[in-house]
Design a protein around this nucleic acid. Structure first.
Length: 746
DNA sequence: ATAGGGTTAG
């Protein structure tokens, strides 16, 4: 594999040596310059008027050609002082001199000063300079609008643009792109529309810079049809026009159309540059088309752009999203000082592919290098934390957030609610929820999903009513949360009712909602109702819907309907092990051993193997993984003694294991020995011998708990007086005093 | 005399 990717080797330090080779921006003078004749009066004037801190002498001798043979022109002199190497102190000094010497040469010098201040990021300094000038002309107005929109102060940019019109200064072809950029960044569609009208009235209908700004504006505001209309009227399209419309389609969830326009562009003689390739790569990343993405990668190399930082980020996202996280990491490692966006791309790439530990590791590395994360970094790291399911890790992250600038960030706190819920503490999730002052629909929905995971359906519905009282409208995710909560709690009629009220809020049910309803009905044993529901769906039932039906058939041993669902699943999703396992389990529960064997043969033919089961328990901040019959732990002997002791106490308490169907159940962990060797039992035993009495044990499983273990753990919780929290593949079980929070409804 | 547009993480 490494051989097929020769582009990953990088000559040492090439990225940086290229910068060193970049020529300094000096002016080339004609050979044989005339002799230097600077009038004595000028030198005297300069000496009396300038402080040494400006180091003017050096400046003169460096630029003396500018003054040769001509009388000293102060305005030209000032203009030449304001070059790119200017510092903030110099800006103020020059401005002071302008006032003191009474040299008012019109707005252009101030405009130049403001632009230079903007270039070096001195936004407030630029504004101060602007404010001192009483009667700004269009150059000066443009300078301040541009300064604000370049540095992310979009509201200020729009405000200054509006004030310019109050001052009766007509905008020109340079004003529009700046204010349009501000409008698209916010986004402020209404303001953008007004600007569009002004552009029309001022006759900039064929200015390509202005029109590109409009394309970007409508694309960013989701008005892709309008963006395309403006693009369609453009006669001389530049690479920027094409990039704007391509990225517009890519950002509005139409990557295929974006790619079609790119291929259209390739028929013209406009050559893509690196920004265009970034947009195209994003589209291929969205559709997870690695093959075409690789061909763009080839383009990148051919054009000699393989060391462009931003293209490396795009390539990293592409390979990571397509599952090649190792390749992505090689790109990441090539760069000595990755930007924040680069770190975020790598972390989220890991999270998307289930490499949660690597993601957390990278987050820690970032912290150790004192790189400041942003809310995206933190949100992705929380997602990793939720995947692992470690409550300790969630607490650590929470503590970190509470001391950071993200303490009051709504998006981060929403991620924290989700993380706490997925790490087993619905109470901590609620605590975070309660302290958020202005809850938006995502915050409410996250909490409802959290209750759903823990089977607290009533709480979820109460929250829904509270949300409506607070005047917040639900969205489609809200209903996913509610329906999940209902199906996990057996609230059939409540869920059914909520599903039918989605239309009242103008929300069209998606696959997930239909799947929830099928699950809701099916699990409660209303299999015929569920089947009728599927048959009358307005959209084609997909994998999730048939999967829910099959799983309901397994619980209620409805073989014929289950076979029907399985048949659909095998044609829709032929290489997913889970469906075969479910069907096999259905046969096993009905004691159809021949059929079980047939499914196993079918799986073998397709080269499918069942997933290995494992359980994870966290002791003193360390995650310990167990598989069935696992003897690898250093304290293995003690663990097995504890397992046997538990088994003995279970029998004494009258527990009767139901072995037969479970032993043939492919979903669960096969072992030649006894059922009590299942991984969660080992994890529980290890937890019991490693923690003080009364400590809650928290276990995460990759599969669903088997019937036998579920029954056993209920009793164990009573025998050892411990609360045991188990996260299985789809939900939480809280075992306490011989009962489980799921009410055996799972 | 002065200056402008497009991109990547979630």
């Amino acid at each position: 594999m490494a051989k097929s990717l020769p582009f990953l080797t990088r000559p040492p330090n090439k990225v940086f040596s290229f910068i060193a080779l970049c020529p300094q921006p000096f002016k080339i003078r004609p050979l044989d310059p005339p002799p230097f004749r600077f009038p004595a009066s000028t030198l005297k004037f300069l000496e009396t008027h300038y402080s040494s801190s400006l180091n003017l002498t050096t400046h003169f001798y460096k630029n003396k050609d500018d003054y040769i043979g001509s009388t000293f022109k102060p305005d030209k002199f000032y203009a030449s002082l304001i070059d790119d190497s200017i510092h903030k102190t110099h800006l103020n000094q020059i401005y002071a001199k302008l006032l003191v010497t009474g040299l008012q040469y019109g707005g252009f010098l101030i405009a130049k000063l403001v632009n230079k201040a903007s270039n070096i990021g001195e936004v407030s300094c630029a504004r101060k300079l602007f404010d001192k000038f009483p009667d700004p002309d269009v150059f000066l107005w443009n300078a301040i609008v541009r300064c604000y929109s370049r540095h992310g102060f979009f509201g200020h940019a729009i405000e200054m643009y509006a004030r310019m019109q109050v001052a009766c200064v007509s905008p020109d072809g340079f004003s529009f792109p700046c204010v349009l950029k501000a409008c698209s960044a916010l986004p402020a569609l209404e303001m953008g529309r007004r600007v569009h009208g002004q552009i029309f009235r001022h006759g900039f209908e064929s200015d390509v810079f202005v029109q590109n700004g409009l394309v970007a504006l409508y694309a960013k505001c989701g008005e892709i049809v309008r963006a395309n209309a403006v693009f369609g009227r453009l006669v001389d399209r530049t690479i920027v026009s094409w990039t704007s419309i391509i990225s517009g389609y890519a950002q509005n969830g139409q990557p295929i159309e974006a790619l079609r326009i790119f291929s259209e562009m390739r028929k013209t003689n406009v050559r893509p540059d690196w920004i265009a390739l970034v947009s195209v790569l994003r589209a291929y990343t969205d559709v997870e088309d690695l093959e075409h993405g690789k061909s763009i990668h080839g383009c990148v190399i051919k054009m000699g752009l393989e060391y462009e930082f931003d293209l490396l980020i795009s390539l990293t996202s592409l390979y990571a999203k397509c599952g090649h996280v190792m390749v992505a990491r090689l790109f990441f490692n090539q760069v000595e000082n990755p930007s924040l966006i680069f770190w975020n791309a790598m972390i989220s790439g890991y999270v998307k592919n289930g490499y949660a530990e690597e993601a957390i590791e990278l987050f820690r590395l970032m912290k150790s290098k004192n790189i400041r994360p942003d809310s995206i970094t933190v949100t992705s790291s929380f997602a990793a934390c939720a995947q692992i399911g470690s409550l300790e890790l969630a607490r650590w992250m929470d503590e970190y957030i509470s001391m950071s600038e993200f303490r009051n960030d709504v998006i981060v706190n929403t991620a924290l609610i989700d993380t706490y819920a997925k790490c087993g503490s619905v109470d901590m999730a609620r605590f975070v929820f309660d302290r958020i002052p202005d809850k938006d629909v995502v915050v409410w929905s996250a909490m409802m999903v959290g209750y759903g995971l823990h089977g607290q359906g009533r709480e979820s519905i109460i929250l829904f009513h509270a949300m409506r009282q607070a005047g917040v409208s639900p969205n489609d995710v809200t209903f996913v949360g509610l329906l999940t909560a209902c199906k996990n709690s057996g609230l059939v009629e409540e869920g059914w009712d909520l599903f039918h009220r989605m239309g009242d809020y103008g929300i069209e049910p998606r696959h997930q909602h239909y799947a929830c309803v099928v699950d809701l009905l099916g699990r409660a044993g209303h299999l015929d109702r569920a089947y009728n529901f599927v048959m009358n769906m307005p959209i084609e039932p997909g994998v999730s819907v048939w999967g829910a039906l099959l799983s309901a058939c397994k619980i209620h041993r409805h073989v014929t309907l289950g076979e029907c669902a399985a048949e659909r699943l095998f044609s829709l999703d032929p290489y997913n092990t889970g469906h075969y396992v479910q069907l096999s389990n259905l046969y096993a529960s009905s004691r159809l051993w021949d059929c079980v064997a047939k499914v196993r043969v079918l799986m073998k033919e397709k080269g499918l193997t069942k997933h290995l089961g494992y359980s994870v328990i966290e002791i003193n901040g360390k995650l310990q993984v167990f598989q069935a019959g696992d003897k690898t732990h250093p304290r293995s002997k003690e663990i097995f003694e504890e397992v046997e002791d538990l088994e003995r106490r279970l029998k004494e308490a009258g527990f009767v294991p139901h072995t037969e169907s479970v032993l043939h159940d492919l979903n669960y962990e096969e072992t030649e020995e006894t059922l009590c060797n299942h991984s969660e039992r080992l994890a529980i035993a290890y937890g019991l011998i490693s923690t003080p009495p009364g400590t809650t044990l928290r276990i995460t499983k990759n599969l669903r708990a088997c019937n036998n273990c579920h029954a056993a753990i209920k009793l164990i919780s009573k025998l050892v007086s411990r609360e045991i929290v188990v996260r299985d593949a789809s939900r939480f079980h809280h075992f306490k005093d011989g009962a489980c929070s799921c009410g055996d409804y799972w």
